[in-house]
Amino acid sequence: MPPTDAHADPVTGPAPRAGTGAEDTLDPPGTQELLAVPAEEIPGAPSTPSTPSTPSRPSPSDVFGAPGAPVTENAAGISELLDRPAAWQPAATPAGVFQLVPVRLGRDLAVISRWMNDPAVAAFWELAGAETVTAEHLRSQLDGDGRSLPCLGVLSGTPMSYWEIYRADLDPLARHYSARSHDIGIHLLIGEINNRGRGVGAMLLRAASDLVLDNRPLCTRVLAEPDLRNTPSVAAFLGAGFRFSAEVELPDKRAALMIRDRVHRAQL
Rank of each mutant, 00 (worst) to 15 (best):
E131W: 03
A95R: 14
P60L: 10
P38V: 08
A174S: 15
P102Q: 05
S53Q: 11
A120W: 06
D5S: 15
P102C: 04
P46R: 06
P38L: 06
A66N: 13
W125G: 00
W163D: 06
P217V: 13
A45L: 02
A246T: 12
S47N: 07
I112G: 02
K253D: 05
R265F: 09
H176D: 00
H7G: 15
R167M: 05
L211D: 08
P49K: 03
E249R: 11
G241W: 07
D143I: 11
D261Y: 14
L250I: 10
L173P: 12
R196N: 09
R104H: 12
D27A: 14
A122C: 01
H137V: 00
P251G: 12
W163R: 01
R114F: 06
P94M: 04
I184Y: 06
T51M: 08
R243E: 14
R139V: 08
A76D: 01
D261I: 01
I259V: 15
D27P: 13
G19M: 05
A45P: 03
A6P: 10
D9M: 09
D261S: 14
E131N: 14
A128K: 08
S113A: 15
R180H: 11
P217N: 07
H176R: 01
K253R: 13
A179K: 12
R260W: 01
D227P: 12
A207K: 07
L100S: 07
T220F: 06
E23L: 08
Y177T: 09
L138P: 03
I259G: 12
G129C: 01
L35T: 14
P67M: 05
L257C: 12
E225L: 14
E73L: 12
E41G: 09
Q141T: 03
L238M: 11
V97Q: 15
D118P: 05
V97K: 13
Y162E: 02
D169W: 07
